[in-house]
Design a protein around this nucleic acid. Structure first.
Lengths: 191, 191
DNA sequence: CCAAGAATAGTCCGAAACAGACCGTCTGCA
DNA sequence: TGCAGACGGTCTGTTTCGGACTATTCTTGG
């Protein structure tokens, strides 16, 4: 397999983190790992946590694959700045072009606890539901405050993901509040 | 710290998987790792994937901590059967009793792709939205078929988590269908 | 002006998680 | 009776994960 087709040859080794990095670098023109860390923290990181160590490890790896170009300060903080290459842009485009049918995961500790609520003491569910509702309400509020951002810092695609985040949190709040209400009326063991 | 308080001493080393195993064993009285694997596959595994290797590794670990009791066939398939101990029941109760405020994660590859959609070709988003909507509709249908199950195999707590699953998938379907509709009318780049 | 502390920027490591290959055992039924 | 498919389990090599740790630069108030 020749190296002149980065799209094909590298695709197998690219993970979600890879595309996250490629996408962020492409969007911003150039970025240091630290920049990536910040971008992630205020966007996708809300849904999907990426340990920052990964955001430092991934760019050099992508550079080796020829998808990014690296340039490093010699002195001071020795920042590493990355830019996307043509091959990188191609790999990103190819990924964006293939529609994804995978469903992802919903790793919610509260949900796991609820699944075994029947084994706990009577009051436990109420407390859980109440805590969860509050936590999700808080996050919903945060998300809503983001909607005020201007289009410059928030491309439409990002705004769309924010909308999903809002819809998700709203659903969670409704779910836990409904559960709480049913607990109050003794409905929860029936149905 | 004395060993006579398993609740306190073991709590630090217990992960979500631990409680999943404790809970399943408690619910069913006794279980082999293989049973756990099956239980997980048809319930929580839909939201949160646990590699089966973990469900084989965790029970012996919990047995060492005194939270499970192990008993093994000497011949044939050499099944390992686990039962919950008093200490295990206590640890589980303690976990259920503390309300959880963590929000969990939403690891959805489609969402990641959407976040960078602005960098792709015009038709890409439609294809993605269409594929995602279809996938979530399919899962929604599966979940709905589960609601027919009797209360024997489906305790109320599990039924509740199923309800959340349904609400979640419904929200996803609506989100992607709305996006698709907006694409058709050229709305997506504005807003 | 300068010291303290906050924010910036990056490295490193051990412990888990993870995916999946692989291997025996048993049951039903053709 | 033989074999397909479900059962039941072990193992291994990578990645991921979380967090501790270091060093540089900026800010601010005394």
């Amino acid at each position: 397999m020749a190296e002149d087709d980065a799209t094909t040859s590298a695709a197998g080794q690219l993970t979600p983190v890879s595309y996250l990095v490629l996408g962020l670098v492409a969007r911003h023109g150039a970025a240091t790992p630290y920049d990536l860390k910040s971008f992630v923290a205020q966007s996708i990181g809300n849904f999907w946590s990426f340990p920052h160590a990964q955001l430092y490890k991934e760019p050099p790896r992508l550079a080796e694959l020829g998808l990014l170009a690296e340039e490093r300060e010699e002195h001071g903080r020795r920042r590493r700045t990355f830019r996307i290459t043509e091959a990188g842009r191609a790999a990103l485009s190819a990924w964006l072009a293939e529609p994804d049918t995978s469903l992802g995961e919903l790793r919610a500790p509260g949900l796991l606890k609820l699944a075994f609520a029947e084994l706990g003491k009577p009051g436990d569910v109420e407390a859980l539901a109440s805590a969860q509702a509050a936590a999700h309400r808080a996050r919903l509020k945060t998300y809503r405050s983001y909607t005020a951002m201007s289009a410059d810092v928030m491309p439409w695609s990002l705004r769309r993901t924010l909308e999903l985040g809002i819809a998700y949190e709203q659903m969670q709040v409704e779910f836990w509040e409904r559960l709480l209400a049913d607990c109050a009326t003794g409905q929860h063991t029936r149905r």
